[in-house]
Design a protein around this nucleic acid. Sequence first.
DNA 1: AGGTAACTTAATGTCGACAATCGACATTAA
DNA 2: TTAATGTCGATTGTCGACATTAAGTTACCT
Lengths: 227, 227
Amino acid sequence: MHEQDSSVIMQKPLSELIADQLKRKIWNEDFQLGERLLETELADTFDVSRSTIREALKILEIEELVVSQARKGTYVTKFTDQDVDEIIELRTLIEARAFTQAIQYLEEKHVKELQAIVDQMKTKADENDWNALFDLDMQFHSYVVQLCGNSRIIKIYDSLQVQIRTFLMHLDQYYSSHQAFYEEHKQLLQALVSKDVHTVEGGVRNHIEYVETKLLGQKNDTKFKEV
Amino acid sequence: MHEQDSSVIMQKPLSELIADQLKRKIWNEDFQLGERLLETELADTFDVSRSTIREALKILEIEELVVSQARKGTYVTKFTDQDVDEIIELRTLIEARAFTQAIQYLEEKHVKELQAIVDQMKTKADENDWNALFDLDMQFHSYVVQLCGNSRIIKIYDSLQVQIRTFLMHLDQYYSSHQAFYEEHKQLLQALVSKDVHTVEGGVRNHIEYVETKLLGQKNDTKFKEV
DNA sequence: AGGTAACTTAATGTCGACAATCGACATTAA
DNA sequence: TTAATGTCGATTGTCGACATTAAGTTACCT
């Protein structure tokens, strides 16, 4: 929450710290989707030079949280229906591969860690703590993808997750019940432990498809902003 | 070769133009793999400020042609065996999906264009023009991926291709015979025209695997640099 | 009155300079 | 002789200012 106390030596470049802060501001809806980001203004509010802001924005641009047109300005990405579809397609593709690859690297300790996450889900589901569930969801998937052994796939997934976060955060919840949420991940873990490629691949596809259905349902209902 | 004549109004930011030039320099081996790139030096040779060089390097970093460590410097990426393996895994994953998705968007005119590329391949194969064949190969795959309809997948592939170019350019050729090269793509196109998902998917996997075999063969032989 | 052209304002692109940090060499002590 | 520490040059991080371009505004002409 406060990684850049002015007196402390900071290992990370300032630009990255600011990039992180900007991300949070987008997630918190401090910035509207589609809103224009003025370099000068940001430099003012963060009390750094425009060069630094520029580098920070470049980072966000890589992760597609903002788009910038030359000499026109940079805007917070406004996810259209097509964007959501594209992200889901890519997520399915990446996770299906990563999960099946993860099987061969899956050790006992990993299963333990994952089980811990799923257990926490149960707790949080009982407490109806949606935000915590959301984080655990992200953690679970990240953890498995991290096992796949391909640094490029991992990097793509990290970037994807930032985007997923951005448009999922704006829904109250995408699961009908918190309990179902927990159950789904329990099954995913079971599939992994079985070490059967087809079971895992099917599990991932079903899981994401399920989320998608819920999400699109809400979208067509009320919550999602139109473009 | 000379997009930035000083008198002309340039639509693209300077940094992008310089990024392109840097790419070419890497492909031409003007820079050694692993070589350190000094910002000041580059600013000098290109006659621009360091800020501009910095932005250009950031672009190269995104495409993983250079790696930069904070306060240490940026270096031309030195592709290790693992890097090559990772790239091939990712390429297979992406192309397999993109090609099968492309089926549904494939129109007559696209087939014609692709056929034209393949025809050119035959010509260049007869002429033993390896460089031209190499370019046509890239064109062919790019063209199909472009049809898949998912801009994010396309973007990832573009970035991937830059990397593929970088380490393939350093091989004299990765196909045993130019003729086989042409035949392979002819078959790929046939698979596409058939519009059968399994045929296409199999075709892509075989094709890339074939290239990989050839490549790894050369690597273990003579041409490839060790890490 | 409507539309176009010149003008004004504001934001981005680019620059050169200063500050913080790193790596290497030299110096000193064990 | 070797290892630890201090110093110096080189290099990256950050800054504020100027140049260029885009958008909005006013004035003028038809």
